Amino acid sequence: MKRAIAYDWIDSQGGAERLLPVIFDAYPDADIFTLYTDYDKAPWARKYQKRIHTSILQPLYQLIQSKRALAFLMPLAAALLPLDQYDTVLTITSSFLKGVRTKPNAHICYLFAPTRFLWQEEKTYGIASKLLAPLKYLDWHSAQKPATLLTLSRHSIKQIQAIYGREAQLLYPPFNPSYLRHSSKPTVPLPASYFLFVGRLEPYKRVEVLIDAWNSYAMKESLVIVGSGSQRRVLERWAKNNHRIHFVPYISDAHLSYVYRHARALLMPQIEDFGYTALESAYCNTPVIAYKKSGVWEAVSRDKPNASIATQTPEGVYAALANFHTSSYNDIPIAQGVPTPVEFIKRLRAIF
Rank of each mutant, 00 (worst) to 15 (best):
I351M: 05
T311A: 11
N306C: 04
R232Y: 12
I10N: 02
K145W: 14
P134R: 02
Y39C: 00
E122R: 07
E208K: 14
H255Q: 15
K67D: 14
G316M: 11
K103T: 05
L180C: 04
P339D: 11
Y36E: 00
A192V: 13
E343P: 06
D8R: 01
Y110H: 06
L19T: 00
I56R: 08
D25W: 00
Y276M: 14
T311C: 06
S327G: 07
S184E: 15
V259E: 09
L90E: 11
G15T: 01
N242C: 14
L223V: 12
F33D: 01
P314Y: 09
L171I: 14
H141I: 10
D29G: 01
L190H: 10
Y61L: 07
L131M: 11
L201R: 12
V342Y: 08
A78M: 13
V259I: 14
W297H: 02
H155F: 07
I334C: 02
S55T: 04
A71N: 09
F24D: 01
T187S: 15
W9L: 03
D87P: 03
A71P: 00
P146I: 07
A128P: 03
D25G: 00
P189K: 14
T286E: 11
A319V: 12
Y27M: 01
R200V: 09
R154W: 09
F24R: 00
V317A: 02
Y217A: 08
T37G: 00
Q161F: 13
H262L: 09
I334W: 07
E122N: 06
S142V: 03
I211S: 09
S178M: 11
S129R: 06
Y217W: 14
T311Y: 10
M219R: 12
P314T: 05
Y217L: 08
V288L: 01
Y125V: 01
A42M: 01
V317L: 10
I160S: 05
Y250D: 11
A335E: 08
R232L: 15
E315K: 06
N285R: 10
